[in-house]
Amino acid sequence: MTTATSPRSREFVATVKLLTFPLLILAMFGLFAMFEPRIASARNLVNISSQSTYLIVFALAQTVVLVPRGFDLSLGNAVSFTSVATALALTSSFAAGLPGYAVVVLGLLTGLACGTAVGLFNGFFASVLGIRSFIVTLGAMNICYGLSATISGGRPVFNVPEAFTTFFYSGTFAGIPAPILWTACVAIAVHVVLSNTVFGRTLYLMGCNPRAVEVAGLPRRKYFAIAFVLSGALVAIGALMLTARTGTGEPNLGGNLLLQAIAAAVMGGVSLSGGRGGVFHAITGALFITVLSNGLNFLQISGYLQQIILGLVIILAIALDKSRD
């Protein structure tokens, strides 16, 4: 057989494909900047990169379950639940006079406990009992909504201690702003897990063909459950960063965050039918959504219209996902 494409030209095509989407984001950015020059200001660039960090973490959380052909509808409400629970723990511990570092550790532990608990719940029902993940997470979404509304009384929890907000939001470490640093750590960790471990490899294989993974003797159910727990931990980290940024525990984050996370992951190229996509895709997808909403905000497009646009982006992402197969 004659190979029409040499390995080198195939690699070239692959690189071009990989760069298409980032270039598209740049083009969109340029277009916005033409209408509103302030968009291209250094200050706004910093703004965009710090804004995008949260979405990157949430898109990564969604990616980790999308790759093994799962789905997480509970993401938004799990963020609320984690945020409110952590804020309550923080304010009460601060009131009790704990020192700053202890407050940070306590907040971190509370957040991770809440997030992984939700992940464990989803993972248990989706993998051990084999219920389709989206129905499980739909249930979990309501449970999280109910829990966060109940413990907060439906109101934001104010007075998150400064030690906490410094660590996760306003502080800098070696000149790097905290949100960017933590997000980079998370992204690198997720990348290593997905592409350099047996667990990560298995997630891709089972996303593509779950029964083949079982025949090959790999622990499909266990890994599927762990994927949800990992996703829950990522949700928790994102929620902590978000809580630090607003300085409040937010009970009503729900729907929009979920839609943005899904749109980011799928738009970036993570497949809805599993087995394709990684950290790079989640990051570019999140950047796309952030640049878009940043631009729309500058152009003073109403929030309602932005919601419509987000819906259209999701439908577009689905269509793109379909065309990639």
């Binding site: 932005q306 987000l310 259209l312």
Partner: peptide, 30 residues
């Protein structure tokens, strides 16, 4: 969308629900 894009319905309806709610709120300003 479900019949011809052959995508799972919950993704499609999640997208349309964002559009439709946005439209309802946009029309009335809430």
């Amino acid at each position: 969308c479900v019949a011809y894009l052959k995508v799972h319905s919950f993704m499609v309806t999640l997208g349309t629900s964002s559009i439709v709610v946005g439209l309802a709120l946009y029309l009335t300003n809430g």
